[in-house]
Design a protein around this nucleic acid. Structure first.
Ligand code: FES
Ligand code: FES
Lengths: 179, 179
DNA sequence: TAAACGCGGAGTCATATAGTCTGCGTTACC
DNA sequence: GGTAACGCAGACTATATGACTCCGCGTTTA
């Protein structure tokens, strides 16, 4: 949990779409284009969420990702941990036992337990984690639903189905060779 | 406050020495050697603490740094802010208004206020900052004094005075040309 | 006057982030 | 049964930042 990167922002926004998708799998490429972010990069994020057991992927042409459990059972902390790994907020270098008066053999009282400074940092990190654990995807979904007008949901659904249906006619890489 | 770097660890450990020094200025080079860390690097840290008003520096041959106020008036948060600057834990890229269904003109309801995800991160950061603000240098000094035996304090004082006195005779860069 | 200080800027080296570009195996649909 | 849409994995690049180092200047004290 060193620094919350953009991957976390991408991941949570995507998971909110999945939460609103009612179990229907959404492809990572569609999610990327819908939100105007990089397809390649988002494709590197979802495997992390899958390994953490937050989403399940289905292969094949109509595949994609869906939530592995109810949104109320997915906390923000779980998502952050899945993306960032277990990097601590503060990594102590144990400089306390490098004191010059110790010479080469620091006494036991100097190295016993955690350094008091380190302990403060651990408490701060824990406070942050507690706050992240207190919010779930369901909470966020409610807030989002309160802001967006109902017509917006329909527009997005239209966009998704149109995009899914558009794969049959033309619509490969190049959108339209003009005239 | 992106990621708590080693500079923070160095800074707080040094400030604890200053807190125990009873107003006598200590040079950054002595503090570095006492703790077995880089002199050059520590010399880049102290100006930040000085600009933040945590410590005051005195120039000249017997100069050094001392605390600008009582240890009980210096919180860990102030030190961290002095070192790390105001980098946020999470920097929102505002991807919410890049949604494809908006086209080029995102509606006002989409961009009003803070994103719900961002809000959670801000609360988490605030929880961390509150925890850091709840601890002062004085608290840490008490914990340290409780661990170290009284003789250790004297040993360090001896080390400091010996080091200050040793500048007159030999003792330049090379410690001793052997025999 | 020289050595011990603080102060500031430039430069180095390693790592991490953000992002790209392949290719491979699977699956649905015509 | 072929093709295109999927997930999945790995190699690759570029930029930023962290952790230093080096050098030189102004000040002060012995
Ligand atoms: S030794 Fe790492 S914080 Fe004290
Ligand atoms: S737009 Fe940045 S967190 Fe939602």
């Amino acid at each position: 949990m060193a620094h919350l990167t953009v991957s976390v922002e991408y991941a949570i926004h995507c998971l909110l779409w999945l939460a609103g998708s009612a179990g229907a799998p959404l492809s990572s490429r569609d999610l990327a284009e819908l939100q105007g972010i990089s397809q390649s990069f988002l494709a590197k994020i979802f495997p992390k969420l899958e390994k953490a057991g937050i989403v399940v992927g289905s292969e094949g042409v109509r595949g994609g990702y869906r939530l592995a459990r109810a949104p109320a059972e997915i906390s923000v902390l779980q998502i952050v941990d899945a993306i960032e790994g277990d990097k601590p907020l503060f990594d102590c270098q144990e400089i306390r036992d490098r004191c010059a008066v110790f010479g080469d053999a620091p006494p036991v009282w100097a190295t016993a337990g955690v350094c008091a400074i380190h302990a403060v940092m651990l408490k701060a990190e824990q406070a942050m984690r507690d706050e992240l654990a207190a919010h779930t995807l369901a909470d966020l979904a409610v807030t989002f639903a309160g802001k967006a007008p109902p017509e917006f949901i329909l527009q997005v659904q239209d966009w998704m189905t149109e995009r899914a249906g558009a794969r049959k006619p033309g619509r490969q890489s190049k959108p339209e060779p003009p005239s």
